[in-house]
Design a protein around this nucleic acid. Structure first.
Lengths: 151, 151
DNA sequence: TGCAAATAGTACGAATTCGAACTATATAGA
DNA sequence: TCTATATAGTTCGAATTCGTACTATTTGCA
């Protein structure tokens, strides 16, 4: 592949990396003290998918090692945002439940992001995002599948 | 903002986050043992912009705290990929120079990414990327500017 | 049924990130 | 010129990420 084309793909992933970095900072600025993006991701997942998920199930969903999730869940439990109970279907396993405080924390974060989304929407209307999303989704799905083939 | 629209913006940043995670893993799988993405980012920057940059200059370019860069540069120096010399223009400062080994390492990583880019190009031709890039760049620039206004 | 292999989760330690505090040098203004 | 302030970089310690090794339980199959 020639250098010009190579640079194009480099720029694609570079822009994506910067957007990711900035948007994570935005999210974390809107979370209560000590909560970071991975905590929010868990809370959000438990509301969107429904709670009662197992740690391993979430580790796979987020593509992180299970030891990482153990640590994240411990932080959420310490703060009283989730409860971990034994899994009645499998003695090795646990199930993760949201507390009222956990639900409230997630909803507050979503609400606190709203002003930001409004500002972005002023420059990037939902129609624009709807135009961008399918290709991004296709790219995500494609490179995700590539992972099995090329590490 | 209504929930449907909110979900749209959420999905945008979520897709971007996943692509970033996977592409970093791809890069790191192609780097010599112990080198990680931030190391490569520094090497690549020193070639693209030219070496002789100061640590602070790079910390700003990558939007990371200068203490993070101290650590990354120490790793590169240990491995003989860069050399840090005093800055003749400013006694407080240093300048970072690539070694031959550093240049070679960066070039090898680029070469090792080529097969991957080819596979992506089969599904996402350069024209497609050229279509996606301007909007992504515009989004990056916009939220980067937002940072000054909203944290 | 019994036992080897697989699976869920945790403990521990190394590497990375990053804020606070520190040293050394440069700069600006009285 | 002198001194207060700003700036470049490092040190240190806490939090996060993640690989290895471990325990407990389940599953597969002889």
């Amino acid at each position: 592949m020639d250098d010009v084309k190579q640079l194009l793909y480099f720029r694609l992933f570079n822009e994506i990396g910067i957007i990711q970095q900035i948007s994570t900072a935005f999210l974390e600025a809107r979370l209560p003290d000590g909560l970071i993006a991975p905590h929010f991701t868990v809370l959000n997942h438990l509301i969107r998918v429904s709670d009662g998920r197992t740690p391993l199930e979430m580790a796979r969903a987020f593509q992180v090692p299970k030891t990482t999730l153990t640590h994240t869940l411990a932080g959420l439990e310490e703060r009283g945002l989730i409860e971990m109970r034994p899994n009645p279907d499998d003695g090795r396993s646990k199930r993760v439940w949201l507390t009222d405080k956990g639900r409230a924390t997630r909803n507050q974060a979503i609400a606190d992001l709203d002003d930001l989304f409004e500002m972005i929407a002023a420059e990037f209307p939902s129609e624009t995002v709807e135009d961008m999303l399918p290709e991004l989704e296709r790219l995500r799905i494609f490179i995700d599948a590539l992972r099995d083939r090329v590490t």
